[in-house]
Design a protein around this nucleic acid. Structure first.
Lengths: 260, 260
DNA sequence: GTCCTGGTGG
DNA sequence: CCACCAGGAC
């Protein structure tokens, strides 16, 4: 089966790109981020016409995550507090997580905070959010040991995931505290599916809209699939499809496809 | 020769429609209104590639007029105060007039204020603007007796220029003070080119974007060519091309074409 | 650069 | 309904 993750940067603006891509690419589960729409206004029918079940956690303007799946998902959850009652309700105000179970595997679709600039208030929120996420995943793992966690992590763990013109040191999405927070999560038992198949750098999933970044290939690999051991063993491929970034009015991110 | 007037409602948004229309329609002079762009940002090259000279009086966001002409124009003017030094400078803040001479004929391209609602401050401005326009034209006529005045007048002079569902009485664009102000201008020696050839009603040049007005043909004829006697005699046809209103993302106005 | 909102203008 | 802006986010 194929599980893809794609930060679509507004599902309403990108609807035709996403639908066309799904028609061209046989995807079982598509995890989207930055849908930027409340659930009532999500464009359901184009996905339903392709046979997808739809699971949503959206808000106005910002954030918002969605999963569309050919098979139905069980045990959907869209909040942190329902899994971790003691956690601050601030983490559920922004819609950044949706999870459900398919074939005994839990899919966790995440939109990690961007963090703005190192040292900013939003940066501190990102680090607190990642610490909270660790607790959340620990709880989930206790009941479902097989987890495919994917989404826009807004973190590049290695310098080879970042184009050469950037200086990763103290850069948002590359700073050591962010990387450490993500590594602390992975030590729960997750591994990067992409790195099972590809060890070289120069593969990117996001290019800033500004400064002609895509034309100059100044990208970052910040969209990931992290798998628990059994799933990692099963992984058959993990690839980045840069074609949709070449269309007119593209998302700044491209889809990453995991095959299990 | 053919002289067309078209309120394009943003030349940048409508560029492809206008260029395609010019390629399909052999127009010598196109007068545009509501270009909504400062002169530095006007998309010059598509017109230049078609062989047009370009004359501009634009502003940010609102209003803005332009003439493109296969032959060059002489004696361009884009202000009221330069013709009528005693007039209030408020009338030059909004870019609503551009005029130039071709073959001894002066073309005056106008975007008359909309007036918002009868009795409003904008309505009073419209009436003052029209009174000022009369003086302006009187001055122009003294040096150039042959004038083709065209543009978006935001006035329908007769009830048959307005769809049946509207109640013209005290309606903006149809109120008696507006009509009288326009008639006072026409008594300087102008006649409606369209009415030389067509006496029936039901011909419209503008349909509101709202309420599916075009589909229901709830239109108004508010875009006109007014000609001085010699030119009126020479007029060969005056037609409205509603085809561009059927395209996707159309202007709410369509071109009106005068043939001399 | 491209997206969103909320506001104005029509 | 459609276009513009400013301001914020990324």
């Amino acid at each position: 089966m194929k599980i893809a993750t794609w930060n679509v940067n507004s599902i309403r603006t990108r609807l035709q790109h996403v639908v066309d891509w799904l028609i061209q690419n046989p995807i079982d589960v598509l995890c989207m981020q930055e849908t930027k729409v409340i659930d009532d206004n999500f464009p359901r029918s184009p996905f339903e016409e392709l046979g997808y079940h739809i699971y949503l956690s959206g808000q106005k303007s910002y954030n918002g995550v969605a999963i569309v799946s050919l098979q139905p998902l069980q045990n959907i959850s869209t909040s942190f507090t329902s899994i971790l009652p003691e956690v601050s309700p601030e983490f559920d105000e922004q819609k950044r997580v949706i999870t459900g179970v398919i074939n005994g595997m839990r899919i966790v679709n995440l939109y990690v905070p961007n963090g703005s600039a190192v040292g900013s208030e939003k940066y501190e929120y990102k680090l607190r959010w990642l610490a909270m996420l660790r607790e959340y995943l620990q709880t989930l793992l206790a009941s479902t040991p097989n987890i495919c966690m994917c989404g826009d992590f807004n973190i590049a763990l290695e310098d080879k995931d970042i184009h050469e013109k950037a200086n990763p040191e103290n850069h948002i999405m590359a700073s050591e505290p962010e990387r450490q927070a993500l590594r602390d999560i992975l030590t729960l038992g997750f591994a990067d599916a992409f790195r099972k198949f590809t060890s070289e750098g120069g593969y990117y999933s996001w290019w800033d809209y500004r400064a002609a970044s895509f034309r100059r290939n100044l990208g970052w690999r910040i969209d990931h699939h992290y798998l628990t051991p059994n799933l990692y063993e099963l992984a058959k491929s993990c690839t980045i499809d840069i074609v949709p970034r070449k269309l007119t009015q593209p998302s700044d991110h491209v889809p990453v496809i995991l095959e299990l």
